[in-house]
Design a protein around this nucleic acid. Structure first.
Length: 294
DNA sequence: CTCCAGGCTTACG
DNA sequence: CGTAAGCATGGA
C-alpha cells in the first residue's frame, strides 16, 4: 500500500468516526482564546458564537468560559492540550521574556496569548503563501485551496489538503486559488514532500539552526518563513520571525543599531532578540507583533 | 493614481 | 560578495 493510499484511508477513518464528539472543560490559567486564535499565527479559525477550527482533519469548536475553555471535538483531550500548548509553564515564560518596561505592558495587555502547535505541512504551505501578502489574502487563498483540494469533513468545513493531493494539481487549477506568484512554489514543495525528497516531519528532531538550514532549501522559504514554521509547528521557542511589523516595532522600541540591507537588518534584529529575550523569545515576538499590527 | 502587505528569488555591480 | 528590482493580488 502506497503512502498516498494510506493517507486516503486515514482521512476516511476520521470521517467515519466523526460522530463521536466529546466535550472537554479544561481549566486554564493565563489562557486567552481570542488573542491566541486572532493574533495572526493561524489562518483558518473562524469566530461566530464560538470558535471553529479544523486540526488534523478533525473539527474543533471552542469557547472561553472565564478560566475554562470549553472544547467540542472528536480529538482526544491530549491532542487539544498539545495543540494549544496548555502544558507550557507560561508563568516561567513571562518571567523570562519580561526584560524591560517596553514588553511588560504588552504581556499584561495580551495576557493569555499562547503559541499554537500547528501541523507542520499546513503551517509550511500557509507561510509560503504569506510572502509579501496580507493576512486577509492569505486566509482567502488557503480557504480556496481547502475547498478545492481538501476533504469535506462537515458541511462547509474542509480539511487542509495533503501533500499528495496537492502534488497532482495542475498549475492552471491551483491558479484558481489566487496565490499569485506563490502558486508554483506550493506545487513544487507539495511534490518534494509527497515524493520524500524533503523530510518535513524529520525536522522535529533537529535543533533550531539545523532545522532552519533544511527549511530554507525549499523554494520560497527564507529565514522569516522558516522561523515561522519552526516556531508555530515545531515548537522552537528560540525562533524569532522578523516581518515588516516586527521590524517596525523593534526599531521603535529597541533599534538604534539595526542597519544595512533589508534582509541583513532582519537577521540582526532576530539575533538581537534571541540574546535580549532569551530562550523563549518566540513568545515575546507574538506579543510585539500583535501590538504593532493594531 | 501610488503604496503596502507575517518576503523571496533573481539579476546586476 | 551585497543590494534592489520584480513578483500576483487586493485593499487603503
Amino acid at each position: 500500500m502506497g503512502d498516498s493510499e494510506q493517507h486516503y484511508l486515514a482521512q476516511n477513518y476520521i470521517l467515519a468516526c466523526d460522530i463521536s464528539h466529546s466535550v472537554y472543560r479544561i481549566r486554564t490559567k493565563d489562557f486567552n482564546l481570542d488573542h491566541t486564535l486572532s493574533c495572526g499565527q493561524v489562518f483558518r479559525w473562524e469566530k461566530n458564537d464560538q470558535w471553529t477550527g479544523i486540526v488534523n482533519g478533525a473539527v474543533i469548536r471552542a469557547k472561553q468560559d472565564n478560566n475554562e475553555i470549553v472544547i467540542e471535538s472528536s480529538l482526544p483531550k491530549d491532542a487539544i492540550t498539545d495543540y494549544f500548548r496548555l502544558d507550557d509553564d507560561i508563568g516561567k515564560i513571562y518571567a523570562s521574556i519580561n526584560r524591560d518596561e517596553k514588553i511588560a505592558p504588552l504581556i499584561n495587555k495580551y495576557r493569555g496569548l499562547r503559541l499554537i502547535r500547528q501541523d507542520p505541512w499546513e503551517c509550511l504551505v500557509s507561510y509560503i503563501c504569506s510572502s509579501n501578502n496580507t493576512i486577509r489574502n492569505i486566509s482567502n487563498s488557503i480557504r480556496r485551496m481547502c475547498e478545492s483540494f481538501g476533504n469535506q469533513v462537515e458541511k462547509g468545513i474542509y480539511s487542509f489538503p495533503t501533500p499528495e493531493s496537492l502534488a497532482n494539481v495542475e498549475l492552471c487549477d491551483m491558479s484558481q486559488c489566487r496565490l499569485g506568484f506563490r502558486t508554483p512554489r506550493v506545487l513544487k514543495v507539495s511534490n518534494m514532500v509527497a515524493n520524500h525528497e524533503f523530510d518535513l516531519y524529520g525536522i522535529k528532531d533537529l535543533s533550531y539552526l539545523e532545522g532552519r538550514k533544511e527549511l530554507v532549501k525549499i523554494g520560497g522559504v527564507g529565514n522569516k518563513i522558516a522561523d515561522c514554521v519552526l516556531l508555530f509547528a515545531f515548537g522552537k521557542l528560540e525562533s524569532f520571525p522578523v516581518d515588516t511589523h516586527i521590524e517596525q516595532i523593534m526599531e521603535r522600541y529597541y533599534g538604534v543599531n539595526f542597519k544595512g540591507s533589508k534582509s541583513k537588518k532582519r537577521d540582526e534584529i532576530a539575533d538581537f532578540a534571541r540574546r535580549y529575550f532569551g530562550q523563549y523569545c518566540g513568545y515575546a515576538q507574538e506579543y510585539l507583533y500583535l501590538e504593532n499590527r493594531e
